[in-house]
């Protein structure tokens, strides 16, 4: 199997911090409703969006995220 790196389109890595009770459930609903959306957002479940520390965001950028989404 070979990967064509030359023509590969930029695939952004986005980290999404989602609240267990809001967005994570919202994402679940989007899933069971069989909606289509882009797969770039890597969802991380947090107990509440208030759990998200600025350090999480910085750490995500540091370790390779191209974008960060905080939703609650």
């Amino acid at each position: 199997m070979s990967i064509d790196t030359e023509n590969k389109e930029f695939y952004p890595n986005i980290v999404g911090f989602t609240c267990n009770w809001c967005s994570y459930t919202g994402a679940d609903l989007a899933g069971v409703s069989r909606m289509k959306y882009k797969p770039n957002v890597k969802v991380i479940r947090v107990p509440c969006s208030g759990r998200v520390n600025p350090a999480f965001v910085l750490r995500a950028f540091q370790k390779g995220a191209d974008g960060v989404l905080v939703s609650g």
């Binding site: 967005s23 994402a27 679940d28 989007a30 409703s33 289509k36 905080v70 609650g72």
Partner: peptide, 19 residues
């Protein structure tokens, strides 16, 4: 680069569009 959104549990469509 950093986005913050409010999505409630009943807003599956909003989640998809935000993504």
């Amino acid at each position: 680069r950093l986005t913050a959104r409010w999505i409630s549990a009943s807003e599956g469509a909003k989640f998809a569009s935000t993504m």
